[in-house]
Design a protein around this nucleic acid. Sequence first.
DNA 1: CTACTACCTTCGAGCAACACGAAGTCAAGG
DNA 2: CCTTGACTTCGTGTTGCTCGAAGGTAGTAG
Lengths: 142, 142
Amino acid sequence: MYTVKEVAKLLDLTEHTVRYYTDKGLVPSLQRDKNNNRLFDQQSMNWLRGAKHLKQSGMSVEAIKTYVDLCLEGESTIPQRYEILLEQRDKALAQLEEAKQRAEFMVNKVDHYRDIMNKVVPDNMNPGNWSKNEIQDKAPLS
Amino acid sequence: MYTVKEVAKLLDLTEHTVRYYTDKGLVPSLQRDKNNNRLFDQQSMNWLRGAKHLKQSGMSVEAIKTYVDLCLEGESTIPQRYEILLEQRDKALAQLEEAKQRAEFMVNKVDHYRDIMNKVVPDNMNPGNWSKNEIQDKAPLS
DNA sequence: CTACTACCTTCGAGCAACACGAAGTCAAGG
DNA sequence: CCTTGACTTCGTGTTGCTCGAAGGTAGTAG
């Protein structure tokens, strides 16, 4: 059994966010101790982890709540839940592609700055001269 | 030369966001036509693309503005800019890792739902039973 | 010339998802 | 007993859009 602080640390969320999600009903199995403190068992952790993944893949808190309610309704909602997950999966895959490009972009910029500071190339590093490919990147305008 | 609508499409931003960023000074090279319409040349596109990448890697609009101002100040701010980019690069790399895990998670869930609908396994798919590894995933609690 | 369409503009309000701080409760330690 | 610290609720603040109103301009069709 975990406290708010512990789950926040384990799942890499702030305590504020953990409370916010539980208040919004995203963790239906949440329990309380005799002092009304939130208490997370493994199942509650799983709801919360699922909520985090769904949120980060682009769902609103409200949409996640709807999804959770569908889960609680039983097996009859499985096709509906499947459709939702399918859409979120595709978003997650698209995000992964974007994250790759972003990481590559940032790595290139840092390398470029390092070169500048080593006097290898002149300063064409301000974003106005940033472009989408390295050919242009290495052909400074200014 | 591109209009707001065109850059929005090219960079995959909403028109609102493009106007918001330009209003916040993230595109110092922005020009206007005789009717006061925003007009983007290649340089302005690059500022905007840079702003988008920095934003998505976790910087606030205000922080990006600060960065842009540093760029405009000249070469003396290069070490400072390098530090900023270094931090953002690390965040981008961390995000990439998270995106990978999230995508894997979502793919597993979708596959799992497909199995359920094909009557391969019983329903243990509600998030309360979701767990971090597939061993547990395939050992339903309910 | 007018009317319609399709852009663009500014501005101000609204909104989601937290973030934060106040004010209070409770249990343990010195 | 009193402080420390972690928890609670509640209400306000912030960021980054998001939307819509209200209006200007340019092109085309009748």
